[in-house]
Nucleic acid binder design. Structure first.
Lengths: 341, 341
DNA sequence: CATGTTGATGAAAGCGCTTGCATTGCCTAT
DNA sequence: ATAGGCAATGCAAGCGCTTTCATCAACATG
C-alpha cells in the first residue's frame, strides 16, 4: 500500500508472486508474458482494484499519453465541434487532451504552450499559423511535435490540417457578387495575429478586385466575434452612403449580429440587406433568416489532427499537411440586392 | 542534463553550488531561503531555461495541481461559458483543468472519472447530481474532493454550486400562464440520468398544477438538445388537437428548434405560438424572435466552483453548498395566445 | 560561559513506475 | 549428449522531484 492508501505495482507483484517488471509488462505489453502468469496478475489487479499511477508512469517512461491544445476560447461555438472530435479521437486511443485558452492573445498562447510543455505533453495542437516565432521555438527546442489546425496556407512550413480560408472567402464573395451586389461591406474578425481572419479579408478583397471593386475602410471594419459588437458595427456600415447592399462577415456570430443590427435600423435581411457568414456553426441555421455561410469540416479536421499528431508522436515521422475542402451553403440570408439599389 | 536534453533540478543545483533541496525550496517556498542564495539560484534557472518536470513533482509531492471536470458535451454552448470561467479561475491559481466529456452517458462519465483519478487530479467537477452511486463511491474511496455544478437541490448531500432548476422552471411556466396560455406543451431534455432536465419538467408541472392544469404526454415530449430534433418534435406537438399555444422548452437550443418547427408549419412565433427556453446562451438572443428564457449565472457558477473546490483541496475543509439565483429574461418569443385560441 | 533557539542548508530516502540486462529453463539442431 | 537459441521472468537502476531529519553557524538568554 502506498502512502495514499492506494495499491501500487509492488502490492500487485507481491500478491501475485511475481516481480514488478512482470506486472508492468502485463499492463503494457501483455503478449510478452505467459498467459497463465498474466491471468494471475490480472486477477490480483482486479481484486486489489489497482490503477496505475500515471504520474509515476510518465516520469519513468518519459511519455505522458497526453496532448495539449491551445484554442482562442471555449466560449464561442466555433472551436467546439472540432475540439470535441479531437478529444473523442484521442480518448479512443487512450490519450488525454489538455485544453488551454489564449483569449486571442499571443503572449497568453505562449504561456499556455509553456505550461503544456512543463506538463510534458507528447504533442500540441495549435489554431492557425500566425504567432510569434518564439512560440514555435519553444516547441522546436523541446522537440515536441505539433500540428496547426484551421488554416492551410500554401507556404506554411509546419504540419497542418485545415482549409484555405482565403479561397473559401473568395468563393463566398463571388456568390455575393453573382447575386448582383456591388456595394459590399465586410465585418471582419480582428486580423492582428489571426491568419484565418486576415485570409478571409484577403479572399473577399481578391474577389471584389476581380470585378473591379475595392474593399476599404470604412466599408471594411474589424471587430470581436460577438453578436453585440457586430450588431453595432453593422449599424455603422449601414449608415454609410452609399449604403452597402450586402455585408460579408468574418464568421457566423458576426453575421447574426449584422442581421440584428440591420433590423434595429428597420432593415430586413435579405429584403433590404444580404448577410453572409462563415463556419456554419449551429447558430447559422437557428437564426431568421438562416445564414448563408461557408461549411467547414470541423469534425473531420479534429479527427485528422488527432491522427496526424499521434502518428508524429509515435514514430517521429515528419508530419504532413492535410487540406480539406469547404463549400458555400446557401441559405435565406443571401438574395439579390433590392431593386431600388 | 536529463536524458531528454532538458536541464533538471540537479543541474541547477550543481551550477548554483547548492543542494537540490535548496533549489526546490526556491521554487516552492521562496521565503525559506536566504535572498542571496535565492538570487543565485534564480539566475541559474533563467540561464539554463529550467522548467520543473511536473510529472516528477506530482509523483514526489502526491499533488498534481490539476483538477478534472466531466461535462456532458463541449459541442453545445450550454457549458461553454461556465467551463471557461472555471478554467480561467483555476489557471489564475496555477491549476490546470482537465476536461472530459460523457455524452450524457453515466457509464462514460464513470470511466472518465476513473481516468481523471488515475491521472491523480486533486479535485473533480461534475455536472448535476443524478448519477449511479458507484461513481460517487469512486471519488469517495479515493478521497478526492469534488463539487457538483448546475444543480442545487434541497436534499443534495454533496458540495454543490448551482441553482434550483425546478423553481426556475416553475417561475418561467408561471410567466407563460400569466400571459394567458392554457394549452401548454413542453419539449424537455432526456430526463433519464439528468436531474436538470427532470427538475425543469417537475417545475413546469408544478406551475400548471397550481392553475389546475396537467402536463402529460403527448403534450410533454423528451428529446435530445438539438435544433433539428426539437424542430421535429415541435411539429408533432403542433399537430395535436387542441394545439398548444405555448411550448416550454428544456433549453434554448430546443426553443430555437421549436420556433423553426413551428415556422415549417406556417406558424409564426409569437403570433401563433409562444416559445420559451432556458439557459440564456448566446443563441437565445440571436434568433428571431429572440427567445424568452431563464438567465443562468454561468460564469459565476464556474468561478465559485473553482474557488470552492480549491478550498476543499487545500485544506480538507468540508465543502459547502452554494445557491445562485436565476431570473426570467423576457424577450419577443413569449406573448399572449392568439385571440382565436 | 554554557545553553537554547532559530534559520539556512544539505544528505538522502523515497514517490510508483519502466526497462536494459542478466538469469533461468527448455527446446531444437547438430 | 552438447551447444545454441529463445521465451519468460527477475534484478535493480534510475526517471526528477519533494521532504524529513540532521547539521551547523549565528545569536539571544540567564
Amino acid at each position: 500500500m502506498s502512502a495514499s492508501g492506494l495499491p501500487t505495482l509492488d502490492d500487485v507483484a507481491r500478491h501475485a508472486g511475481v516481480s514488478t517488471a512482470t506486472v508492468s509488462r502485463c499492463l503494457n505489453a501483455p503478449d510478452r508474458v505467459r498467459p497463465e502468469t498474466r491471468a494471475r496478475v490480472e486477477q490480483v489487479v482486479a481484486e486489489l482494484g489497482y490503477t496505475p499511477n500515471l504520474s509515476a508512469r510518465a516520469l519513468a517512461s518519459n511519455r505522458t499519453n497526453t496532448v495539449g491544445a491551445v484554442i482562442p476560447t471555449m466560449e464561442s461555438a466555433i472551436f467546439a465541434l472540432g475540439l470535441q472530435a479531437l478529444q473523442d479521437e484521442l480518448s479512443a486511443r487512450g490519450v488525454t487532451l489538455l485544453v488551454a485558452t489564449s483569449h486571442y492573445d499571443p503572449e497568453r498562447e505562449a504561456d499556455q504552450v509553456r505550461t503544456l510543455l512543463a506538463r510534458g505533453v507528447d504533442g500540441v495542437v495549435l489554431i492557425g499559423e500566425a504567432r510569434p516565432p518564439a512560440t514555435y521555438k519553444l516547441l522546436e527546442d523541446r522537440g515536441t511535435p505539433f500540428v496547426l489546425v484551421w488554416s492551410y496556407r500554401g507556404d506554411c512550413p509546419y504540419p497542418c490540417v485545415g482549409f484555405d480560408n482565403r479561397a473559401a472567402a473568395r468563393s463566398m464573395a463571388e456568390q455575393v457578387l453573382d447575386r448582383g451586389h456591388r456595394r459590399i461591406g465586410m465585418i471582419a474578425g480582428i486580423t492582428a495575429g489571426n491568419d484565418r481572419a486576415s485570409d478571409r479579408v484577403a479572399g473577399v478583397r481578391e474577389a471584389l478586385h476581380g470585378r473591379g471593386l475595392e474593399l476599404e475602410e470604412p466599408y471594411l471594419a474589424e471587430t470581436a466575434y460577438s453578436v453585440e459588437a457586430s450588431a453595432a458595427i453593422a449599424q455603422t456600415l449601414l449608415s454609410l452612403s452609399p449604403r452597402p447592399t450586402a455585408i460579408i462577415c468574418g464568421n457566423d456570430v458576426q453575421a447574426a449580429g449584422a442581421i440584428r443590427g440591420a433590423r434595429a435600423l428597420g432593415l430586413e435581411t435579405p429584403r433590404d440587406l444580404s448577410v453572409v457568414g462563415f463556419d456554419d456553426i449551429e447558430l447559422a441555421s437557428a437564426t431568421t433568416p438562416e445564414i448563408t455561410t461557408v461549411r467547414v469540416p470541423h469534425r473531420r479536421m479534429g479527427r485528422a489532427a488527432a491522427q496526424l499528431l499521434l502518428r508524429m508522436v509515435g514514430s517521429d515521422q515528419p508530419g504532413e499537411r492535410i487540406e480539406f475542402e469547404t463549400a458555400v451553403v446557401e441559405r435565406a440570408s443571401l438574395a439579390a440586392p433590392p431593386a431600388d439599389a
